[in-house]
Design a protein around this nucleic acid. Structure first.
Lengths: 190, 190
DNA sequence: GTCTATACATCGATAGAC
DNA sequence: GTCTATCGATGTATAGAC
């Protein structure tokens, strides 16, 4: 049972505001107002606006990286691995849809951690590409353009945050299963 | 043969910058610098920063609206209609990938035209939803959750702008066909 | 049509009282 | 830990010379 600190609260509120207007358009005064305090008071809990963005994005990016590593190390079929990737995205997007918006839309405003983020992102795409390529080689997946299959799946999963808050998608298991059906029947030969 | 005015040039350059950093993070000085002039000089061609955003977004939104209307009025099967929608997105995203970034990511910064944009967007989604629902009813499309099929297709098409600039996707006909295969085999019963 | 100069608002962040 | 007050930088936009 972790106690939520004031800092955590600020970061959570910031993520919500960043989702609505983007990092650049949200001012420290906006954030303070949403927290019911003055802008100057925020600095007793956080170092800078930039630090808030960094914590939101890097935490999530590392969660995806370690999640995919576990899937990659399992002894499943490649189609099964893709189903697990869908579950991973649904799970993280369900827990933190606001943070996911920053991860997707505000990463370019990262300062010192930008290179690190880009490295995690590139590696993530590359590992998913290998799962698909492996699936094609083993006749689990149709022999269509791999980049198109990769980006079709990935962009759908990346935009999950924007429709997961709607009531009809609140059941993660059901959503994962339905989404897998829609995404995979398109690349599954059998 | 339309001559490109200085105003058109400014809007095109702005769209490129908006794609990189988003509307809010691009300053008039950034834009002027990219145009090789001073910020004050921009105002001899455009009324305000807001006007630039409005022209980028509303032009594209209306292009999608009229494109979908034509598809809807044709006498094709619903699967064929979806293939036409894919072509429409590939065509517009190929012609103007930078503007598409603003349409997707900066629409919330529209001021007076925000309601109009939201109306076009809602109507677009509703018409596409009806094509899918009609396809399910006529046994062309699997009887899976319509919202999930709609958003899976739509989010993939909406993110086209981000990977279309890569060399391997420069052939619109081929890209449309491959994308249709990947997207539709997932919802096509036959 | 582009420039310099500048008005005026608002930004992120700090100092210091309580 | 929150406040008031404020700093210096930077934002959009205008005025007026050339």
């Amino acid at each position: 049972m972790k106690t939520e600190t004031r800092k955590d609260e600020i970061i959570k509120t910031a993520a919500k505001l960043f989702k609505e207007k983007g990092y650049s358009a949200v001012t420290m005064r906006d954030l303070a107002s949403a927290m019911g305090m003055k802008a100057a008071s925020l600095y007793n809990h956080i170092k800078s606006k930039q630090q808030i963005l960094k914590e939101i994005i890097i935490t999530l990016a590392e969660e995806f990286t370690s999640g995919l590593r576990q899937i990659q190390q399992s002894e499943k079929s490649n189609i099964k691995k893709i189903e697990e990737v869908v579950k991973l995205h649904v799970k993280i997007a369900s827990q933190n849809p606001y943070g996911m918006a920053s991860l997707n839309n505000d990463w370019m405003h990262l300062e010192e951690k930008l290179d690190y983020y880009l490295e995690l992102r590139t590696n993530y795409e590359e590992e998913l590409r290998e799962i698909i390529a492996e699936g094609v080689k083993k006749d689990e997946i149709i022999d269509e353009n791999i980049e198109i299959m990769l980006f079709s799946i990935l962009t759908t999963l990346r935009s999950l945050y924007s429709w997961i808050p709607k009531k009809e998608y609140r059941n993660p298991e059901k959503l994962s299963q339905q989404l897998s059906t829609v995404l995979i029947q398109g690349i599954n030969k059998n």
